[in-house]
Computed example of a mutant assay.
Amino acid sequence: MGKRIMSTDIINHIEFPVAEAERSRRFYEAVLAPLGLSLVISIDPARTSHGGARHGFGKNGYPTLWFHEESGARRPIHIAFTADDRKTVKAFHAAALRSGGTDNGGPAFRERYHANYYAAYVLDPDGNNIEAVCQTE
């Protein structure tokens, strides 16, 4: 049997639709880099069941965040990524704005959650609310 890659997190992976897979790929390559995530795999539209490209991002060669191109109406989602420190939250936010994201709450403490909740929010090209958060002192 071949080597099996296992995720130890409670969620194995997340996938969501986007209007333009290549535009989103470029956006997420830039935005996720400060968080240590990178493009792991791209699947050609001819090999997908829905006829649109798929891209998977993750760490250590395992894609935990997927999106696929799909036409039609969709509701925005919210995804929060863990950042190791506040500097990384700032780098995430800056990369998102440089890459076509829209500010939805710059890097700051969100004490309504708790005293050490430091986060930044951006809207991706499809209007999804993407967050980076550091919850350490």
Results as ranks from 00 to 15, higher is better:
64 T>F: 10
89 V>L: 06
129 N>F: 11
112 R>P: 03
38 S>Y: 03
36 G>P: 03
82 T>D: 07
76 P>H: 12
95 A>F: 00
115 A>L: 09
137 E>D: 13
130 I>P: 00
102 T>G: 05
53 A>Y: 06
53 A>L: 12
38 S>P: 00
27 F>Y: 06
112 R>T: 13
87 K>W: 08
72 G>K: 02
65 L>K: 00
124 D>M: 07
6 M>F: 03
25 R>Q: 14
62 Y>E: 04
31 V>S: 10
20 E>T: 01
127 G>D: 13
109 F>L: 11
46 A>Y: 05
119 A>S: 15
130 I>L: 14
63 P>Y: 10
136 T>Y: 09
55 H>R: 04
97 L>W: 02
19 A>R: 11
84 D>L: 13
23 R>F: 01
88 T>C: 06
76 P>G: 11
89 V>Q: 08
104 N>G: 01
83 A>I: 15
79 I>K: 01
31 V>A: 15
121 Y>I: 09
33 A>T: 05
78 H>Q: 15
113 Y>T: 09
133 V>F: 08
43 I>C: 03
70 E>N: 01
68 H>T: 04
37 L>A: 10
116 N>E: 13
83 A>L: 11
123 L>W: 08
85 D>W: 15
34 P>W: 15
22 E>V: 14
15 E>Y: 06
92 F>V: 04
110 R>A: 08
5 I>C: 05
5 I>H: 10
3 K>L: 10
110 R>T: 08
21 A>K: 12
128 N>M: 06
121 Y>V: 12
80 A>P: 01
112 R>L: 07
52 G>C: 11
124 D>T: 01
97 L>H: 05
101 G>T: 09
134 C>G: 01
114 H>N: 12
133 V>W: 04
42 S>G: 11
53 A>V: 00
110 R>N: 14
124 D>C: 07
45 P>F: 01
45 P>Y: 06
52 G>I: 10
15 E>M: 10
30 A>F: 01
127 G>I: 03
73 A>E: 12
110 R>H: 13
62 Y>A: 06
117 Y>W: 14
47 R>G: 01
71 S>N: 07
44 D>E: 15
19 A>Y: 02
97 L>A: 08
57 F>N: 03
110 R>W: 11
96 A>V: 02
102 T>A: 12
25 R>K: 15
31 V>I: 08
69 E>L: 04
132 A>S: 14
45 P>L: 04
11 I>N: 02
13 H>P: 00
9 D>R: 00
133 V>H: 09
74 R>F: 10
102 T>W: 03
27 F>C: 01
103 D>T: 08
38 S>G: 15
108 A>D: 14
69 E>K: 02
69 E>S: 06
94 A>V: 14
124 D>Y: 03
68 H>G: 09
133 V>M: 14
90 K>I: 08
71 S>D: 06
7 S>M: 06
107 P>C: 08
49 S>Q: 04
14 I>Y: 09
17 P>M: 06
60 N>K: 10
38 S>W: 00
136 T>F: 11
107 P>Y: 10
125 P>V: 11
37 L>D: 02
21 A>G: 11
52 G>K: 05
60 N>Q: 12
124 D>Q: 04
79 I>N: 01
126 D>P: 00
12 N>G: 03
24 S>D: 12
123 L>Y: 13
70 E>C: 03
89 V>G: 07
53 A>G: 12
50 H>D: 11
